[in-house]
C-alpha cells in the first residue's frame, strides 16, 4: 500500500527542502491532496506555523479553500505575491502580507523572513505555490538564484520548505533547476492519498 503524502511529509526532518510534483492533467485532485497534506497533515497536526507563499492563486482563494476543506487555519500566514498584479487587493486578509509583484523576489524572501521573526515557532513550514508561476514572471537565472538563497537560508534555520511544481514538458528547465536545490522530489501522482 503506498504511503500517503502527509505521512511522507511528516517524516521529513526540519530543514528539508522538497519539491511536490503535480500532474497538470489531474491538477485539481493533486492540488487538494497537497493542500490537505501540507496545511493539515504537516502544518496543523504537528502544531507548526505555516507560511504559504501564494503566487498561483491569491491568498484569499487559498484561505477559503482551506476553510472549505475544514483545515484549521489559525497558524497559517500568507505572503501574497499575486493579488496586486491581479488588481485583486480590495479586501486584504489580516494574516497576509502583500508583495507588489511576483518579480520582486527579494521582497518575497524578506516577507518570509518577516513572518518567521514575527511568529517564532519551533516548527515552521514554508510552502511555495508555485515554481511554475514564479517562472512566468522571472528569468530562469534570477529564479535559480532566488531558490538557491532562500532554500539554503531556510535549511540553516531548520524550516521545512515545500515547493509546488507542475510537471510540464515545455518547462523541463524549471524541473532541472529545482532538482539542484531541493533534497528530494515527491511525485504526487505516485503517492497514496
Amino acid at each position: 500500500m503506498p504511503v500517503d503524502i502527509g505521512e511522507r511529509l511528516r517524516a521529513l526532518p526540519g530543514g528539508s527542502a522538497v519539491a511536490l510534483k503535480l500532474d497538470p492533467r489531474e491538477y485539481a485532485d493533486h492540488y487538494f491532496a497537497v493542500l490537505n497534506a501540507t496545511l493539515r497533515d504537516v502544518g496543523s497536526e504537528t502544531d507548526a506555523h505555516t507560511i504559504y507563499v501564494a503566487v498561483t492563486n491569491p491568498a484569499a482563494f487559498v484561505w477559503s479553500l482551506a476553510q472549505a476543506l475544514d483545515i484549521p487555519v489559525e497558524r497559517i500566514s500568507f505572503v501574497d505575491a499575486i493579488s496586486h498584479i491581479m488588481m485583486n487587493y480590495s479586501n486584504p486578509l489580516s494574516n497576509a502580507t502583500y508583495v507588489e509583484s511576483p518579480r520582486a523576489l527579494e521582497e518575497i524572501m524578506l516577507r518570509v523572513e518577516y513572518l518567521l521573526r514575527k511568529f517564532p515557532h519551533p516548527r515552521s513550514i514554508v510552502v511555495i505555490d508555485s515554481v511554475n508561476s514564479l517562472a512566468i514572471h522571472n528569468p530562469p537565472e534570477l529564479l535559480s538564484e532566488f531558490f538557491h538563497i532562500l532554500l539554503n537560508n531556510l535549511k540553516s534555520r531548520s524550516v521545512l520548505t515545500l515547493v509546488l511544481e507542475t510537471s510540464e514538458e515545455e518547462q523541463k528547465g524549471i524541473e532541472q533547476m529545482l532538482n539542484l536545490v531541493v533534497d528530494e522530489t515527491i511525485d504526487v501522482a505516485r503517492m497514496g492519498r
Binding site: 523576489l105 527579494e106 521582497e107 524572501m109 524578506l110 516577507r111 523572513e113 518577516y114 521573526r117 514575527k118 522571472n138 528569468p139 537565472e141 534570477l142 529564479l143 538564484e145 532566488f146 538563497i149
Partner: peptide, 24 residues
Amino acid sequence: YVLELTPIGILMAPHLKGGLEGGA
C-alpha cells in the same frame, strides 16, 4: 542588498543579479 522596512524593523536580503552585472 535589498532592504525592506517592516514593522519589526529593517530586514535585508541579497540583491539578486540573475547573472547580470549590477543586478537584474
